[in-house]
Design a protein around this nucleic acid. Structure first.
Lengths: 248, 248
DNA sequence: CGACGTCATGGCACTCGGTTCCCTCCGCGC
DNA sequence: GCGCGGAGGGAACCGAGTGCCATGACGTCG
């Protein structure tokens, strides 16, 4: 009881509750398990359960609060040298990392949330908070730019969707295989759609009439794009250009 | 009690419950209002409340179920002639339409959900179902393509995020102004990022100049634009064009 | 050593959302 | 008349979540 006391290993009881809860959840189902069942199995008082978990749902996601804090810290520690889209992609990878830390637990939880509507709803609110954190960061980075808030919201949503797509596919395979590769590919798709080039590797040889991507510090705002569909009437083109360039 | 009975006005009681509920919610707050308060004000039995609304939350979103059914019907009635991304954007407009049908009610609800975490969570699950509907449709359209499921999920999320961004900005302005213009612009952004150019009709080079909005039937999708800011590196322009046009 | 404050825990009672079961009432066809 | 089915109401019940207080361990101070 010397080093691990104050620094890390706070609650043996909390872990006992999580273990007891998951045993019962997998045995007889989530809704068929009452909080009283959990606390009697764990051998603690009912009141103590709600001291550690504000609701019965929270015991299913015991470490998301910490992960969310990590993500906000990660984003808060960003500087202007970081390309924004790439930065939120990296932030999303933190979540995957948490899942990958404990594959069997994550797979168990995935099966649970997949078939219990209440848990799915709760998970949505958790995911929403991640998305909000990403969007808030992007809003700061895009501030002043055209459609900054819109871009921030859309990109955050796209990053979360891509991450979850890859995460779920990894979870469906029982945590086999390399999760990072899948998620890298998914996030790469989003970066290709919204971001600056991921890593200016050796590909840009031909498209370089003068300026190489020197610091990769170019912003997406540098390029605003207006493509006219073939056959579109000119007044539509003009209108779109006007709104794109903005008059506010 | 002749014509409106079976065809339309089914539940006077349901509407009375919604009205009573919103009166109390706005007067004393959502969590401070019990279901018993609502039913006594509406003058009906407690049991009847849960006959019409499966939960207390549902009374806040009385017409989303119908709107979701409309959306799935709309998507189900799609054909191969519809460009997928544009189609889901149009589907999203259905939701905006529902909000715009009853601006004052929508604004009231917006203020409510903004400050009651439980309602926000419930709204997330509603939005999630819309997003799933869009994603399912896109999965069908993208089936067989490279990264079909990933693209479907990401685009659905982006469309929903853009729609909600515009919707919220309209709701924040107390329902003043034209909602459709805002949402068109937001969805246009997503289409610019993800939409593929529609069927390559023959004429491509020239946009007919001097065309007045004849039928005003042109949609924003007709024009997608790519403008390079001066000084932007060419590789950025090319990249942006490539991702906009899509390479799958 | 004993009094005291603090903190984690347990126990109890209560509120409220949601469900189950059963009853009444009303209109319908036989 | 009778039965019958569906809409509504009422009472009891369950379980999640909260507030309040007692208890017991531990450390500190007198």
């Amino acid at each position: 009881m010397s080093a691990t006391d104050k620094a890390e290993a706070k609650p043996p009881m909390r872990d006992a509750l999580v273990a007891a809860a998951f045993r019962l959840f997998t045995e007889r189902g989530y809704e068929q398990t009452t909080v009283d069942d959990i606390v009697t199995l764990a051998g603690v008082g009912r009141r103590s359960f709600f001291r550690y978990f504000p609701s019965k749902d929270d015991v299913v996601f015991p470490d998301h609060e910490r992960c969310l804090a990590d993500m906000t810290a990660f984003l808060g520690a960003s500087g202007p040298e970081h390309e924004p889209v790439r930065r939120v992609c990296d932030a999303a990878r933190l979540v995957l990392l948490m899942y990958a830390e404990n594959p069997s637990f994550s797979v168990q939880r995935y099966r649970l949330t997949k078939q219990v509507p209440g848990l799915r709803a709760y998970e949505l609110s958790v995911v929403w908070r991640y998305e909000r954190a990403l969007a808030e960061y992007l809003r700061g980075r895009f501030a002043g730019g055209r459609d900054g808030n819109l871009r921030a919201d859309v990109i955050a949503a796209a990053v979360v969707a891509a991450h979850n797509n890859a995460l779920r596919s990894w979870l469906r395979s029982d945590g086999q295989g390399e999760a990072t590769a899948t998620v890298d590919h998914a996030l790469g798709y989003v970066q290709a759609a919204f971001g600056s080039p991921p890593a200016p590797s050796a590909d840009e040889r031909r498209v370089e009439p003068g300026n190489p991507p020197r610091g990769a510090a170019e912003r997406p705002e540098d390029v605003v794009v207006i493509v006219s569909r073939r056959g579109a009437p000119l007044w539509r083109v003009v209108q779109e250009i006007e709104t794109t360039l903005g008059r506010d």
